[in-house]
Design a protein around this nucleic acid. Structure first.
Lengths: 340, 340
DNA sequence: AGCATTCATGAATACGTATTCAAGGCTATT
DNA sequence: AATAGCCTTGAATACGTATTCATGAATGCT
């Protein structure tokens, strides 16, 4: 409860130097004579001095803090991404201020304002979108913002996604090669670019081969909605022999309905393919064939682009798409002569 | 790229008042005449002024920021907790700065220092521990620290856990009531109080009834270690008819080995009980009987205690234990005449 | 040796806000 | 009507650091 704040002034007095000298010792890349440095460091050590980041940020205009806004963690893909983002940014010397926001634009805008008040150097939006008037304001203030795993029609925003259309197409081609006839799609939320693009890629690739999907339903990235869609598929006259689901997290719910409620043999009676390749997809309980979103490379791209914009090296926003492979496991019938 | 920072000075000039008046308008609980307030608010609106949190924090000594240190998110319980913590603290007006740290004390201490440099008002340690010399320093600086889901022998630290010993005992009693004879335990990491307490509670309750566990192995809160322990149990002469696992996340791995590799009927041939009651435990794929850790109440307790210490209302540290019920599902044989 | 340069240091200032203090205007009380 | 008292506002200052500028010492050069 003593609450003894020790300042650079205190260190200066004890070391018999001026305050600016202390500051210089603790500012990387500034010249100080070794004699001074030794005196200052010893005094600092004895007093337990550490620079006050707030004061430093106030004057430099650099808070070395990145704001991260995320909507939910139901989908473990975002959890993995958070973990990797945190470590990558820390390596670069940045800290993370994290906010959870509801997915409607009003709430996100509110939170972005909060972050701006905290003088963050940059903002990452994971799986949420923001209004265009706010992005204008961000440009004005010179604070870069990047969308993670979400695209945006406004090309003045940087965004990092996986190659969702290509991914959807890969699924279609794999299923066609496996001889599937009645392919249904429980899409990701159509309010999100990821959901739309995966759907478009899938449907377009089918149509390119002269096929139509049996059914397409918006699964809203929700386990409940996906489960309901599955049940409805199998209460119809014509039932699917393959289901492509908008992401792994909801695909798990589909698997459970197929196996548990409908008593089907997944991979034999019906094929299921997901999207993300979260860690759980490799668990024996699920063994899910899925399109990998390379979280590591996506995170690296976000961090690189964000820091480039912060440091003024990249003034132009970029839309970066990262391709990921189809990971073949047991939940979907393999084409004849498939080699691992 | 304009980067026009508008300050309280700018607002003051435009409104024809002094800078302190502007400050007062934006400081809750300070009296200003309504005429002044109107003028200031209009000017602020026109200029798009928002107070600079850094400058405010520097002078008030309150950053309204809580540091959160977490080791890993493999265990979804911590993900749920993070989500709830974030929302609860935001409701109270606090922001979260999040860090991931490796679990060894040196790394944690480093991160705590980082947080102190950022003048956080309080620190929450989730599933990690810290050295005692650092806690001394924290006391000196007057920054409260709370352990979440981890106890500490040093009773000068506040901590919030579930009633782990009682929980372990509940499992023992349930299994005994169900007529199990050979009960094994794949414990949580014995380097953590949660792992030790659940183990102690379980073993003590067995011994109180004159029973000994068939085997106790440290599962390290790791899926791989738990899976290996399961295999070794069933390659021994005497095999268990029940396994209590240190947390749900590792229990899932145990379930998979039992079902997939050993072809056992879980709930019939062998009972499995976990700890946490994460959302996935209710999924049909797992249907896991488990002891619930009431994340909501634990989070509420952490937030309440932390804020009490920050505001100086609670000067004494407290160790808070929150009791949770056994959630009975299909993974464990129920006692005769069990009523839901 | 004398002068021009570089170099390290200290004094002063700035960053953007909250707070103390003094002064002034106003109401209320007698 | 005169004074005591409160309430509102502005001037000055503080928070803890980084940075500009001036100064003097030290070095290098011919």
């Amino acid at each position: 409860m003593a609450s003894v704040k020790v300042t650079s002034q205190d260190v200066a007095r004890r070391a018999g130097v001026s305050q600016p000298t202390v500051s210089r010792v603790f500012t990387p890349g500034v010249k100080v004579s070794s004699a001074m440095e030794a005196k200052v460091r010893r005094a600092a050590e004895e007093l337990g001095y550490r620079p006050n980041t707030l004061a430093r940020s106030l004057i430099t205009g650099q808070s070395m803090t990145i704001g991260l806004i995320v909507a939910y963690f139901d989908n473990p893909f975002y959890v993995e991404a958070l973990e990797k983002l945190s470590r990558a940014l820390k390596d670069k010397g940045y800290n993370i201020m994290i906010f959870m926001a509801a997915n409607h634009a009003g709430d996100v805008d509110q939170v972005v304002q909060d972050l701006l008040d905290h003088q963050v150097d940059g903002i990452i939006l994971a799986s949420v979108s923001t209004s265009s008037d706010l992005t204008a304001r961000l440009n004005e203030e010179g604070v870069p913002l990047i969308l993670f795993n979400r695209g945006h029609s406004d090309k003045s925003l940087s965004a990092v996604t996986s190659a969702n259309r290509a991914g959807g197409a890969k699924v279609a081609e794999f299923l066609l090669a496996g001889g599937h006839e009645r392919m249904a799609h429980i899409s990701g939320w159509q309010g999100a670019s990821t959901g739309r693009d995966r759907c478009d890629g899938f449907v377009s690739a089918l149509q390119a081969k002269g096929k139509e999907p049996l059914a397409v339903v918006d699964g809203l990235f929700s386990r409940e909605a996906a489960a309901a869609a599955t049940r409805s598929f199998f209460s119809a006259a014509e039932t699917p022999d393959a289901i492509f689901v908008g992401n792994d997290h909801t695909a798990f719910a589909v698997l459970e309905v197929l196996r548990g409620e409908l008593g089907l043999d997944v991979g034999q009676d019906v094929s299921v393919i997901g999207y993300d390749d979260v860690a759980m997809s490799a668990w024996p309980s699920f063994d899910l064939t899925t399109v990998r979103q390379p979280a590591n490379r996506m995170v690296d791209a976000v961090v690189a682009q964000l820091i480039a914009q912060i440091e003024g090296r990249a003034t132009e926003p970029r839309q970066i798409e990262i391709d990921g492979p189809l990971i073949v496991r047991g939940s979907a019938r393999k084409p004849e002569g498939w080699v691992e």
